[in-house]
Each structure stands twice: as structure tokens, then as C-alpha cells.
């Protein structure tokens, strides 16, 4: 079964929105809020679109704005992958 790892998400974020403004991407980012990483709503929308293409997981529009940390994204994506 495919899962998305923190490393995978880091890669997608960098491709979609560039490296985080703060130099925290090298550490554990799972619980750092996107605001603190310097990623805005556009960055997350672009990331969600890429996840839909690469992993086949659709994140509903209203959920995208609620996601605050990489961990929340990973949980949503991996739960959805586990159910499929």
C-alpha cells in the first residue's frame, strides 16, 4: 500500500511552493504550522492539486483551508489511501 511520508510531503511542498521561509525544513516539520513555515493558502491549494494528481486523493476545498500542519495533511492523505 502506498503511503505519503513527511519526506514526500516536503518534496511536494518545495516543488509547489518553494522552500519554507524559515530554515526548519531540515528538521522535523510535521507539527510546525504552515503559517510558521511561510506557506500560504495558495501554496496549500497547489500542493493539494499535486497530491490529487500524484496520489489520487482529493482534499475537499473546505478542508484545505483548515489544514494547519504537515501532520494533518499526512493523516488525511494516508487515511484516505488506507480506505481505498
Amino acid at each position: 500500500m502506498t503511503t505519503m511520508t513527511t519526506e514526500d510531503l516536503r518534496r511536494v511542498l518545495i516543488e509547489c511552493a518553494g522552500e519554507a521561509e524559515q530554515d526548519v525544513l531540515s528538521g522535523d516539520i510535521a507539527d510546525v504550522e504552515f503559517d510558521d513555515l511561510g506557506y500560504d493558502s495558495l501554496a496549500l491549494m497547489e500542493t493539494a492539486a499535486r497530491i490529487a494528481q500524484d496520489y489520487g486523493v482529493q482534499i475537499p476545498d473546505e478542508r484545505i483551508v483548515e489544514l494547519r500542519t504537515p501532520r494533518e495533511v499526512l493523516e488525511l492523505v494516508n487515511n484516505s489511501l488506507a480506505q481505498s
Binding site: 509547489c16 511552493a17 518553494g18 522552500e19 511561510g38 495558495l42 497547489e46
Partner: peptide
């Protein structure tokens, strides 16, 4: 330029 600006 900062990395954040490049993809956009």
C-alpha cells in the same frame, strides 16, 4: 530570489 517566489 527567495525560493518561495520561484514556482509562482
Amino acid at each position: 530570489l527567495p525560493s518561495r517566489l520561484l514556482p509562482q
